[in-house]
Design a protein around this nucleic acid. Structure first.
Length: 516
RNA sequence: GGUCCGUUCGUCUAGUCAGGUCAGGACGCCAGGUUUUCAUCCUGGUAACACGGGUUCGAAUCCCGUACGGACUACCA
């Protein structure tokens, strides 16, 4: 088992989710956060939210609030972080700016990093030149001496450049040829030779650190024990490990999560896939502040947060037995990082709906009726609460979303405005008019007007007269519902009441008339 | 191109670490049943170890190779 590190056994489990506020959080990000959260809770540790906004050019207003609101909706709680506080703050990297500079300089002093003065333009010219010769330019031991930096330039010139306030970056001095052996909790041993790695920029000319530097420093300072993040970070792992070693810091455990893939074809799930295939890619609706473009969210689509979280948790992880329905508490109990899959998972919108259906039918009739109330109100329907609760109980098995409740129950609230044409053709026969007229008399005499009583009375009347059960019941349903659908008919009329049922039959008789 | 990661039914996956039941479950799909209708529900069915070598009495499982897929390859995270 890879999880034998002492950090697993003590109470110092600290994990973080560190998004950058560049837009809405997509469901892959939510899942990463969820796994971090489950891991922290499982081990009695802390879960931290840190905002990585070192790229000032990509800042999007509202993104941070969106992220926080999304987690609130999901029921994922942070112990420390932005808006929450804690002993390791500040939790926004732009507010930690001063911290990074000194560590970058420390690396220069220790010989693990150096100043570089190459401009972006010079760099792209260099890359283009290499490419023209079918070679790959790598800014590392092989080429760094041919570039403009404090390793290649005379000391006096470097000092001159620095005192002139010439823009510079700080680069990591990647060891020439060294095997770096790393461990990943999900994938096991990963090995790479530093000769294929480059001297990554740690500190940008705008005075901000890059992700690589900031994340190492913050994880160390915040005493993060386990870094659980997306697989897209795996190629950067050697750099990060080397950085810990350069600082002389103990490195955390790492776990790189498999990607969420698009449902059709291959590749990482993206915003576009949602638009294209018609399912949300984001937890909450998002309106782009620049373009005004709206992206759909699970919340707005009608998903229950419990269903959403459950569905997400099972995408890349499973408990090892055949359970599929988990509350957040049960997920915490069952979760283990070793049971996270290695390979990417294609998102399945159909299964997502199935999860929501499961949660919907599990909810009490009362709770569903309350969720249904605003929809009824919007339709201009004022209905008795008890009445709605009973209706919901009859139809909830047929619904995936709360909004479906209306399609399944509108006939309870409104008399048929028209009668399904196909149904009329199939079920409104020559005998129907007289039979329904007789039926009215039977129902008029049935007291009390319960489902059981009416069913008994109607069925024995049918038998006595040797009418066909199917013929009578379908015509009856047609008059009451307006179509051949819906739950047990006697349950429907019991809820509708005697008066309303008789009225609907009368109106239906008028409307459909005698055939022939 | 280079580096790294991955590969079991259409999809999510169990089984792989400690080789040995007709490769199990769920979603979807199909069929049958129940029913006054539709939906649900119940029962059954469909369908997979990427390929090629090797090790072994025996390989989905261990080893090597190939193919395919993905991620990364910015003064973005």
């Amino acid at each position: 088992m890879p999880l034998k590190n002492k950090k697993m056994s003590d109470n110092n489990i600290r994990v973080r989710f560190a998004p950058s506020p560049t837009g809405p959080l997509h469901i892959g990000g939510v899942r990463t956060a969820l796994y971090n959260y489950l891991f922290a809770r499982k081990h009695g540790g802390k879960f931290i939210l840190r905002i990585e906004d070192t790229d000032q050019t990509r800042f999007v207003p509202g993104a941070q609030d969106y992220i926080i609101e999304a987690f609130k909706w999901c029921g994922i709680e942070f112990d420390e972080g932005v808006t929450k506080g804690g002993d390791y703050g500040p939790y926004t990297q732009s507010e930690r700016k001063a911290i990074y500079k000194q560590y970058a300089e420390q690396l220069i002093t220790s010989g693990h990093a150096y100043y570089a003065f190459d401009t972006s333009e010079e760099l792209s010219v260099k890359r283009a030149a290499f490419e023209a010769e079918k070679k790959t330019f790598t800014y590392n031991a092989s080429e760094r001496l041919n570039m403009g930096n404090s390793l290649s330039l005379p000391k006096e010139e470097v000092d001159q450049l620095l005192s002139n306030n010439t823009p510079f970056v700080i680069r990591f001095k990647m060891p020439d040829e060294e095997r770096v052996v790393m461990n990943d909790l999900i994938r096991g041993k990963v090995e790479v030779n530093t000769k294929v790695l480059d001297d990554k920029i740690l500190f940008k000319s705008d005075g901000m650190p890059t992700y690589h530097l900031a994340n190492i420093i913050d994880d160390h300072l915040m005493e993060i024990s386990h870094v659980i993040r997306g697989e897209e970070w795996l190629p950067s792992l050697p750099l990060h490990v080397l950085l810990y070693r350069a600082f002389g810091w103990e490195e955390p455990e790492f776990a790189h999560l498999p990607l969420l893939l698009k449902p059709d074809g291959n590749g990482k799930l993206s915003k576009r896939d949602g638009d294209r295939l018609g399912f949300p890619v984001f937890p909450l609706q998002w309106k782009d502040p620049k373009t005004g473009e709206i992206s759909n969210g699970y919340r707005e689509e009608g998903y229950f947060p419990e269903a959403f979280v459950n569905m997400l948790a099972l995408l890349g992880w499973n408990p090892g037995d055949e359970r599929e329905l988990f509350s957040l508490e049960e997920l915490i109990e069952a979760f283990s990082i070793e049971r996270v899959n290695k390979s990417g998972a294609k998102f399945d919108a159909e299964k997502a709906k199935w999860f929501n259906h499961q949660y919907l039918i599990k909810k009490s009739d009362k709770e569903l009726a309350e969720a249904f109330a605003p929809i009824l109100l919007k339709k201009g329907i004022l209905a008795d609460k008890v009445f709605v609760v009973k209706i919901v109980g009859l139809i909830k098995e047929r619904a995936t979303f709360v909004a479906d409740l209306w399609d399944q129950s509108s006939f309870f609230f409104k008399r048929p405005e028209d009668y399904d044409k196909k149904a009329v053709k199939k079920r409104w026969k020559a005998a129907s008019y007289n039979q329904m007229t007789e039926l009215k008399e039977i129902l008029l005499k049935t007291e009390p007007f319960t489902s059981e009583n009416t069913e008994k009375a109607v069925k024995s009347w049918i038998e006595e007269n040797e009418y066909g059960m199917g013929a009578v019941m379908n015509a009856f349903r047609l008059l009451v519902v307006g179509a051949l659908k819906g739950p047990h008919l006697f349950d429907i009329i019991a809820l509708l009441g005697q008066e309303e049922t008789l009225e609907r039959i009368t109106l239906g008789l008028q409307e459909l008339g005698r055939k022939e």
